[in-house]
């Protein structure tokens, strides 16, 4: 068995020393895997991926990337080590041009390699290439999400952390984005995403974790979680008859 890309065990973390949000959460993501974290508001989903990205201080527990312990590593060094994080809001630099956003994505790479990757990214997304000198602030929500992911992919990361990637997108744009996320894990990279839209997230992932009140509640294969009526009712607030895309 290959080592997991991400191994997080018993994570305790919070924004201030006296108020912990996570009380011992464990998550694992294997190479080529898309894993969804779902759960009610305030469960600590976003805090968990911020802790993995190095933005929230981890008070206890350990995190390893590709088998190497990274607990407590500053965020900018994690980025260089292959962890990419796309936040839910403010995920592009609105005052910088589209090209400059990509420069930021490749800031840890040698200059020549960074320039080559920028051209690759612009070739992959013609919409971005057309506007390369314009400010990212002019882009629509879906286009920003695309730029944010293109920026995160500049380092060819091992682990891609996505916080609510489809928030605010139309159902069609969300489906398109999930298709794009599936394409990210081809080369053995791994995706860990947090989603409010539990059903859609489970339909487009391999495994899922249900988080509530800062602890793991249930984990399993995504289709099994989707089929389990009890999970839907208790943790996702869904009834079996709920329509697609309804937010819990």
């Amino acid at each position: 068995m290959t080592a997991p890309v991400l191994q997080a065990e018993g994570i305790v973390a919070g924004y201030t020393a006296d108020l912990m949000i996570l009380h011992g959460v464990s998550v694992e993501v294997a190479p080529g895997e898309i894993v969804a974290i779902i759960g009610p508001n305030g469960a600590g989903k976003s805090t968990l991926i911020k802790a993995i990205a190095g933005l929230v201080k981890v008070s206890a527990g350990r995190i390893a990337i590709d088998g190497r312990e990274t607990t407590g590593t500053p965020a900018h060094l994690l980025a260089a080590a292959g962890v990419a994080y796309v936040p839910q809001t403010d995920n592009v630099f609105a005052t910088l041009s589209i090209e400059e956003n990509l420069v930021l994505g490749g800031v840890t790479l040698p200059g020549r390699q960074a320039r080559a990757r920028i051209e690759e990214a612009l070739a992959r997304y013609p919409m971005l290439a057309e506007r390369r000198r314009q400010k990212a602030g002019i882009l629509s929500g879906g286009q920003r999400q695309m730029l944010a992911i293109a920026r995160a992919l500049m380092t060819a990361p091992r682990l891609i952390l996505l916080d609510e990637p489809t928030a605010g997108l139309s159902p069609m744009a969300a489906e398109e984005l999930f298709g794009l996320i599936r394409g990210l894990v081809g080369g053995g990279a791994a995706v860990l995403m947090v989603e409010q839209n539990a059903r859609a997230a489970l339909r487009h992932s391999d495994r899922g974790y249900v988080l509530a009140e800062g602890v793991n509640r249930i984990e399993g294969a995504s289709d099994a979680l989707l089929a389990d009526a009890e999970i839907g009712a208790i943790f996702l607030g869904l009834r079996p008859a709920d329509s697609e895309g309804l937010r819990p």
């Binding site: 900018h76 980025a79 005052t95 910088l96 930021l104 800031v107």
Partner: peptide, 20 residues
């Protein structure tokens, strides 16, 4: 460019790999 990025959004600059 990193300096302008930090001015706008320090956390996003950090996770991009900028040593703030």
């Amino acid at each position: 460019i990193s300096m302008r990025a930090v001015a706008e959004n320090p956390d996003l600059a950090r996770v991009s790999g900028v040593d703030v």
